[in-house]
């Protein structure tokens, strides 16, 4: 893997928002064909990190290179699926229209029928299993269906790097598994690289190659085996934690409840089963 050049290289990234330091010295590389999970509790800075990678937020220090160039220059390599888009139920836009906007939404002139465009849109709809609701309005779909529609919007240009923000957060168990399968397939079949955030790493363990573990804007990065170690995470949290393995699932727990305050305990437990 390492003989290739990274598709995404993040070095010493620090971000401030509203005068507060949100991310500090985050560094990690992502190589083609990898799936990287960005794990952290609510407010850890996951969304901020993603938006900085996409050039939607400007960093205070550090660099982001996508395909070897500054993020803003290589946006066409990236597909982005935000955590939640509020589609108005009355929005006169079908799923296939939304997907097509991912392909030619920046073009001037009217969107006339085009066989090649139609084919690309159909392929993207098929990849996420959205054929059934392709002609329905996006605003009328369920949360999981809307998410698949937005993923198709991101996929239709065949990006090399797909970035998803908490795609599992609002899904039931079955849909979450289906989505994890889909991500796994994209990596294998389309040689795509995937960066996905979550507050619980467990559903992603079967497919992830790398892990960026965020606590209060600081990150530990590496493979699951490298990062999920008592030593590494204790240092990151700033107090001792233990790691429990149970039936293939991982639970991170604070060590000494009598020393750690209750808030910290709850925060830690949030990452578990």
């Amino acid at each position: 893997m390492t003989n290739q050049s990274p598709i995404l290289a993040v070095a010493d990234l620090s971000v401030d928002l509203g005068g507060r330091s949100i991310l500090r010295d985050v560094s990690f590389d992502l190589y083609p064909g990898q799936l990287c999970a960005l794990i952290g509790e609510n407010g850890a800075g996951k969304t901020t990190l993603l938006r900085t990678l996409l050039g939607l937020i400007t960093q205070r220090a550090g660099t982001v290179l996508i395909g070897g160039a500054p993020a803003r220059e290589h946006r066409e390599l990236v597909g982005y699926v935000p955590q939640k888009i509020n589609f108005d139920p009355d929005l006169p836009l079908r799923t296939r229209d939304l997907v097509r906007l991912g392909l030619d939404g920046q073009r001037l002139g009217l969107p006339f029928f085009n066989g090649r465009t139609r084919y690309a849109v159909d392929q993207a709809l098929q990849a996420v299993g959205a054929e059934d609701f392709a002609d329905q309005r996006v605003g009328e779909l369920s949360g999981g269906q809307q998410q698949r529609a937005v993923i198709a919007h991101a996929l239709v240009r065949k990006p090399r790097l797909l970035i998803l923000d908490e795609p599992l957060a609002n899904l039931d168990f079955g849909s979450a598994n289906a989505l994890v399968d889909l991500l796994g397939r994209l990596i294998v079949q389309q040689k795509m690289t995937v960066l996905v955030t979550a507050h619980d790493m467990n559903p992603l363990i079967p497919v992830m190659d790398r892990l960026v573990y965020l606590v209060d804007g600081r990150a530990a990065t590496g493979t699951v085996a490298e990062v999920v170690q008592a030593e590494v995470l204790s240092k990151l949290y700033g107090y001792p934690v233990s790691i429990l393995h149970h039936g293939g699932r991982i639970l991170v727990l604070p060590d000494a409840p009598e020393n750690a305050d209750v808030a910290n305990m709850n925060r830690c437990a949030g990452h578990g089963v």
């Binding site: 939607l56 935000p82 906007l101 939404g105 920046q106 001037l108 002139g109 919007h153």
Partner: peptide, 21 residues
């Protein structure tokens, strides 16, 4: 007519629009 698609994309979601340039 000229800015038809960019206008729709912006109405759908400003971030997605930014990412399409």
């Amino acid at each position: 007519g000229l800015f038809y698609r960019p206008l729709i994309l912006t109405a759908v979601d400003p971030d997605l629009a930014t990412l399409r340039g």
